[in-house]
Nucleic acid binder design. Structure first.
Lengths: 342, 342
DNA sequence: TTGAAAGCGCTAACAA
DNA sequence: TTGTTAGCGCTTTCAA
């Protein structure tokens, strides 16, 4: 009792009702008789009908497509996000269209706009660091395009953002450094044009301050979050006298750069130098010595963001305990140890 | 002279021609007068019109959506592929929908079918190791869904596949091992249910054979391509007497496992043990010692696959020198060295 | 609670 | 070379 490509008309005919009624059943309208609904549902199941997205979209000006906008070189992070997003997407009949972009590009905002309009995306999820871009958010709001940002600072309404409390995580990292007895600490920040870099730096410094430890300017450098820049910053910090006994980098890539420089200089980690990063990317657990770092619940954040987005698109479709803040946590491995006794 | 949401009707009216003619211009039909075309193009530019994908799709039963099917844990690989695909996609007005899947799942084929039909994908690109799945390819062919596979062995028509010549690359790796003087070599293969694992293994062994070097069964293990299984296999191989002076793993993840075990056992790399992998993923260049490995031109392969796919969907749209075979190449780093003199 | 009919923006037979 | 006219499969006024 199957039909090749069943349409709403087939269902209507077979169920002995009108198209309109079938449409109501599909869209869970409450204005359908208990009995009628049953009959229609039965036919739908029998001929294995599922509504055509394009037709639906054309008629209702929706696409059932969500977009993912990012300008982030960390492939592992992207991959985890995609999986988290897709989990929720498929569950609710949405599909995910990816869009790596170049936020430095001059027509970046328009370019994103074109991306959204050319496929009539129902909404987008924006990853850091693009998520910090005010202009983009403003353009999206102006274009009436639902969006959710994933970020590390609170820069939007609850419905439009998922935040990881990185300040709090850095506090834990500072506590660890203190506990291990480090006083002479080097810090490699991310680009300070990003709020997240500032957030992490401030969180770390503030907590150290609680223990009356401060980091002089000469032991703070600004990196670019890349492996290469991690190496450059590490070379600089490790040439200082006295040499820091510990270095914290804004991410694992740069921390890997620190490990490399230390190895080249014959400095033993963690005996002579403790090193830590942020992200817990694949490197962190594989590198030798394995890296103490901070892990964000990336997939969970992505899922939450997607739920919020879908809830904006079709209100009340997902009953949510809409947490806004997610807690990263410290992962202690081999690269950190007690400061050497003098 | 802009219109809020210009449609084909606006263009037709303003250009003083019929809808049909505008449609012809949009679709580059040759059956349009030189003059008419100019006028229409001018109007299109003036009011910034771009055809609605959904409407187009509904009418022509196409979606301008391509799918990416994979079941591969290497995030970096996926990321590179996505970028390669998107490069070509956007250029030709297509969008990319991602679909990580579970090929062990029993209803895997149907699940992919649903993915394709629910968004009426115009075609899909399949990554290894799913790309080796015969059933999937057969189902796609039966469903008349254009596809291109990325693989390491020739298992389809030229139009449907892009191959990396991994056998050839493994030959180069074997040459290196021989050149460095290794005779006692350990090998960690990938799961031998995958053709690519077999291909790499055979390529390596065959070339060694050319130099009258053979690897006894006791120095060959079958890994699962994971870091953990790399560690297990390495423990096994390194407990053999005499100990191998070199170990080649089917991928970088497992090679990283070998480095870890060697480090734990106090075996110096490369002085006492040479190690090499395959993939050149992010680990390879960051880990200490950095890993000798093989790099495939992943982005280029992905772009080529996409061009082939689009060419299948709309014949002759891309003039192509349709290469089928792509050459990976050896990347020599710190983890390999001359065998220790006895 | 249900149905008839008019589109959504585009493509594609068929004519002219 | 160009236009007329139906739809594609669905949603949605409006009326019953």
């Amino acid at each position: 009792m199957e039909i090749k490509n069943p349409t709403i008309n087939d269902v209507a005919r077979l169920a002995g009702v009108s198209k309109r009624t079938v449409s109501r059943v599909i869209n869970r309208s409450p204005l359908v008789g208990e009995n009628t609904r049953k009959i229609v549902d039965k036919v739908i199941a029998e001929i294995n009908f599922s509504p055509d997205k394009q037709a639906r979209g054309l008629a209702s000006s929706r696409s059932y497509l969500l977009g993912l906008i990012y300008d982030n070189p960390d492939a592992l992070y992207i991959d985890q996000v995609q999986r988290g997003v897709l989990d929720v997407c498929t569950e609710h009949g949405y599909e995910l269209v990816v869009h790596p972009c170049h936020s430095r590009q001059t027509d970046f905002i328009q370019e994103c706009g074109r991306f959204i309009s050319r496929s009539k995306l129902d909404g987008v999820i924006i990853l850091p660091p693009v998520s910090e871009n005010k202009e983009l958010a403003a353009a999206l709001r102006a274009a009436n395009c639902p969006y959710v940002r994933i970020a590390s600072v609170d820069l939007d309404d609850n419905a439009n953002i998922v935040i990881s409390d990185e300040r709090q995580a850095m506090k834990a990292m500072a506590d660890l450094f203190v506990e291990l007895g480090h006083q002479s600490i080097g810090y490699i920040s991310g680009p300070l044009k990003y709020r997240s870099s500032i957030e992490r730096k401030e969180g770390f410094l503030a907590e150290l301050g609680e223990f009356n430890i401060s980091i002089p300017e000469s032991r703070m450098t600004e990196g670019k979050n890349s492996y290469e820049s991690g190496k450059e910053c590490a070379s600089e910090l490790l040439s200082r006298t006295p040499r820091p006994t510990a270095i914290l980098a804004n991410n694992d890539e740069m921390a890997a750069g620190v490990l490399r420089v230390a190895s080249d200089l014959g400095i033993k980690v963690p005996e002579e130098l403790s090193v830590a990063g942020f992200d817990d990317n694949i490197l962190a657990s594989r590198i030798i010595p394995s890296l103490t770092t901070i892990r964000r619940p990336v997939e969970a954040m992505a899922s939450l963001a997607t739920q919020k987005l879908i809830n904006t698109i079709q209100p009340q479709s997902i009953p949510l305990k809409f947490a806004k803040l997610v807690k990263p946590h410290l992962v202690i491995r081999e690269s950190t140890g007690k400061v050497a006794k003098t």
